[in-house]
Design a protein around this nucleic acid. Structure first.
Length: 406
DNA sequence: CCTCCACCGGAAAGCCGGGTCA
DNA sequence: TGACCCGGCTTTCCGGTGGAGG
């Protein structure tokens, strides 16, 4: 039997797993009716030959911003074809396309004009883009997803985009900016903000009930009949609702649960699979986070793990002492305590450790730290770092030092 | 009630790599 | 091409502080 044969056999659980992926845009969006309606109203002038206002959309991750915009713009395109009015939409994810140059090149490309990846001065590209847009003679709607990623690098470009209509003769451009950064407004140039947010749309987080509806709708498409046991969807929804109502998280959780069930050879997804999925997602997060940490933070964590063998809470001072020791062993120049203090806060933000500032009276004021994430997941990742390999040789010496501290 | 510990955490300046502009 | 700028990281400096012990 060919090794691939068993993987080809149709899954007892999944009917179509793509439905659970982030990239999937569903045919209807539960509990976003209001936002869809508002967006449609704002965009409708494009169909009547008018110019829609620029729109700014806020909302945390997984609140359906991108899905809603894609949904509405797709409908807009569809409808404009019926009316044979000339409307087009260009979607840009600013996390991927993150410089002024690339944004402009991307717009040009969307209209069928290729611009070399590098080489031209930006203002020449801008002129070229204007020309191209004008030639196309269309109502162009540009969607800038994750616009905060762009703003830091290319504020100037944003500004010129907001004023592009004065450089156009026939065509018209309106912009839709999307961000999950609620503080975005405060650090952007006021001119740009006021130009961009002629209209604003806010996407509130979903609550547990709404998440359940979303999950049920997708589950219907993604799974075979009756493979999801009672309580599974409710649990996924409840967990995601706790973490700011993120639909993306809820869908991930459901998908991973089902994948675990499938791998186990089970023919139903049970509540216990969800519990395993929660653990797996958590472990994956820790592994991924720790892996990408800078070396000093890794050393710091390594030290904390050593400390945690003898005590479950430690102070900044203790951590710093061990940290310096570790640095000298692998000949890396240590950072100052002030910096380490900040690194500990960063680990706290990432949810790897937990730190609280406490006062021990006569014995000073310090931060009390304990490791929150799964120890063994952290260890595994740290052991993979070649720069920390050397430390294995000093294990006994280091353990003795740690004992002395207690 | 005062002291004084052991660190917190803000401010500012230095350093460095990468990008921009004339 | 070199001067210049920018943002992230780090150091230096330092005023501030909750509460156990006197």
């Amino acid at each position: 039997m060919n090794v691939f044969e068993k993987f080809l056999a149709s899954s007892p659980i999944f009917k179509n797993r793509d439905v659970l992926r982030h990239s999937y845009t569903p045919e209807n969006l539960p509990h976003r009716g209001e936002q869809i309606e508002q967006l449609a109203i704002l965009l409708s002038p494009a169909l009547k030959g008018g110019l829609p206002s620029n729109i700014f959309i806020y909302g945390k991750t997984g609140t359906g911003k991108t899905a809603t915009v894609k949904f509405v713009t797709n409908q807009l395109i569809e409808f404009s074809k019926k009316l044979s009015s000339n409307v087009s939409v260009h979607y840009i994810n600013c996390e991927i396309i993150d410089t002024a140059y690339r944004v402009l090149a991307s717009i040009a490309k969307g209209l069928g004009k290729n611009i070399p990846m590098t080489g031209w001065p930006t203002d020449q590209v801008y002129e070229e883009v204007c020309k191209t847009i004008d030639e196309s003679n269309t109502k162009l709607i540009i969607v800038l997803d994750e616009i905060d990623k762009l703003a830091k690098k290319a504020e100037e470009a944003l500004y010129s985009l907001t004023r592009i209509n004065s450089d156009l003769k026939k065509a018209k451009v309106s912009l839709i900016g999307i961000t999950n950064n609620l503080k975005f407004k405060s650090f952007l140039d006021a001119r740009v903000i006021s130009a961009l947010s002629e209209e604003e749309l806010v996407f509130p987080p979903y609550n547990a009930e709404q998440l359940e509806d979303i999950l049920r709708q997708r589950a219907e498409l993604a799974f075979n009949k009756d493979v999801i046991e009672d309580g599974v969807i409710e649990l996924c929804a409840a967990i995601a609702a706790q973490e700011h109502g993120d639909a993306r998280k809820a869908l991930d959780l459901l998908r991973v649960s089902a994948e675990i069930a499938e791998r186990e050879g089970a023919n139903k997804v049970k509540v216990e699979h969800v519990k395993m999925a929660i653990k797996k997602i958590e472990a994956d997060y820790v592994a991924e986070t720790v892996k990408t940490l800078p070396i000093h933070t890794k050393i710091l964590l390594y030290g904390m793990i050593l400390l945690s063998e003898n005590q479950d809470k430690f102070t900044t001072g203790e951590i710093y002492l061990i940290y310096r020791k570790l640095c000298s062993k692998i000949s890396i120049t240590p950072l100052t305590q002030r910096r380490i203090s900040d690194l500990i806060s960063e680990l706290d933000m990432l949810g790897i450790v937990n730190s609280v500032v406490i006062s021990k009276g006569r014995y000073g004021r310090t931060r009390e730290v304990n490791i929150e994430a799964d120890l063994s997941s952290i260890k595994t990742v740290l052991d993979e770092d070649y720069r920390l390999k050397e430390l294995k040789n000093y294990e006994n010496e280091l353990k003795r030092l740690v004992k002395l501290l207690v």
